[in-house]
Design a protein around this nucleic acid. Structure first.
Length: 425
RNA sequence: GGAGAGGUGGCCGAGUGGUUGAAGGCGCAGCACUGGAAAUGCUGUUUAGGGGCAACUUUAACGAGGGUUCGAAUCCCUCCCUCUCCGCCA
């Protein structure tokens, strides 16, 4: 949620910053806010009078006046009249407030001051590369799904029978490899101080609204018909919402969580893209990193988040690059975002494997997640950040290609061997 | 699914119509005591919105919504959620 006061105080500056992302109608919000406040002033003045009358009558009765005394009749009369007016203004004000809030929920986060300008992914900025020495140009390489099927470790066709396209079944060593990757990633993150959680995979509308998937992106998630429950598109949703409506103390920050969960996405609008293999599935496994931090340290926490995700790729000797997303390519809730892209030999290109975002106070406002500085008045919004650490299926894809031998067998990365208890597939 | 209990401040927990934003405790902050700390004592400590340069002021909030009343945390209705027991299932 954007900061309404910030918009009110300097609409031009606000509009300029937001326009770096794209076109949004702020005027409707400004107008609605003005109307709402005008009405609130009138309503609360009347309410004051109503409260005074109640108090006056109470005081007189306390000091001995009979409740039936005719002197009270006039006051009662006025009270009734004021209340009648109030009963008209009240719902009007509430309607304005609701409309205002609904509009506010559709406005994306402001990009950070230093987020690179640009309207689409071509303007993203490469920050660094790692592992160039592992990239073998011109290496003969089967795409991971072909190698996988040849080895009998993944089954795409039969998965369609069970569910539909974009679902996959892992078999034998494939299942074990996926499990080993999950365990390996979690162990790495836990060793770096992240507290593991295993949250519910179904989340309610309030939770999705807090992290920003609702109301605008309802078609991206699977919905349960009978209940107000959705299949979580990412662990970001349940883990961040652990803290919804909470007031933390400053000393509890930062909070670092890691979580392995399956993720469910409808991938509406991506028909025809990445139709083969492990890259784009309706259900995939992911280890997620989630942070709740003090605003003062949020930029630094963002850097370490990226490093913690990248550490997995380095431990697996998978070449990658880091992109900083431009304003036009930023996700709805993000103020700043780095993508990690892993090298996929079959495509001879980099492919997103982690997205590390700083949401500043945007999700905290929507989810009402605050903290208190001991001894100080009032509360502040926490900053939330998260990133994949990593997308497990895509990691598996990268390994099946990067570690592919000429005979089609797969070498197991050294770091993973203790988990899989074998050195090749 | 059947029966019962309950939802109050950062937390626990009192409170059944009139200065109750709400006793008490915990926690937290300040002060005193101490070489320093613990313990102890005293004092303070809800949040959100509006108006105001500010001091300040006003409104709202005791699960949610509605009703009764001049006045509701307290009475009535509806809904939601949690817990316990029974049944069923993993």
């Amino acid at each position: 949620m954007i900061d309404l006061k910030q918009l009110r105080d300097d609409p031009e500056a606000f509009a300029e910053r937001l326009s770096r992302r794209g076109e949004y109608d702020l005027q409707a919000i400004v107008d609605l806010d003005q109307r709402h406040r005008d009405l609130e002033i009138r309503r609360s003045q009347l309410q004051t009078r109503s409260n005074q009358i109640g108090k006056l009558i109470g005081d007189r009765i306390q000091s001995g006046t009979s409740p039936q005394d005719p002197a009270l009749k006039e006051l009662r009369q006025e009270g009734t009249e004021v209340k009648a007016t109030l009963s008209q203004l009240d719902p009007q004000e509430r309607d304005l407030k609701t409309s205002l809030e609904q509009l506010l929920l559709t406005i994306p986060n402001l990009p950070a001051e230093d987020t690179p300008l640009g309207s689409n992914e071509t303007a993203n900025v490469e920050v660094r590369r790692w592992g160039d020495q592992y990239i073998l140009e011109g290496k003969a390489c089967l795409p991971h799904w072909e190698v996988g099927e040849k080895l009998g470790i993944l089954d795409i066709e039969r998965s369609v029978k069970i569910a539909q396209s974009r679902f996959i079944t892992l078999i034998g060593a494939g299942a074990a490899l996926e499990r080993a990757l999950i365990q390996f990633m979690l162990d790495q993150h836990i060793a770096r101080g992240y507290l593991e959680v295993l949250p519910p995979l179904l989340v309610n509308s309030q939770a999705l609204t807090a992290t920003g998937q609702l109301p605008k992106f309802a078609e991206e998630s699977f919905k349960c018909d009978q209940d107000d429950l959705w299949l979580a598109p990412t662990a970001e949703v349940p883990v961040t919402n652990l803290y919804r409506d909470q007031i933390l103390t400053a000393s509890e920050l930062p909070i670092h969580h890691c979580a392995y969960t399956p993720c469910f996405r409808r991938e509406a609008g991506s028909y025809g893209r990445d139709t083969r293999g492990l890259i784009r599935l309706h259900q995939f496994n992911k280890v997620e990193l989630v942070k709740l931090v003090h605003p003062d340290s949020s930029a630094q926490e963002h850097q370490t988040l990226v490093n913690d995700a990248a550490a997995i790729l380095e431990a697996l000797c998978l070449p990658y690059r880091v992109l900083e997303l431009c304003t036009g390519d930023l996700g709805f809730s993000a103020a700043k975002c780095y993508d990690l892209e892993v090298w996929l030999p079959s495509a001879a290109n980099y492919r997103e494997i982690s997205s590390c975002s700083n949401f500043s106070d945007f999700q905290a406002r929507r989810g009402n997640i605050r903290f208190k500085e001991p001894g100080q008045k009032g509360t502040q919004w926490v900053h939330t950040l998260n990133g994949s650490g990593l997308a497990v299926g895509r990691t598996m894809a990268a390994i099946l290609e990067q570690y592919q031998r000429e005979d089609g067998s797969i070498e197991i990365p050294e770091a993973l061997q203790p988990y899989l208890r074998r050195s090749s597939l």
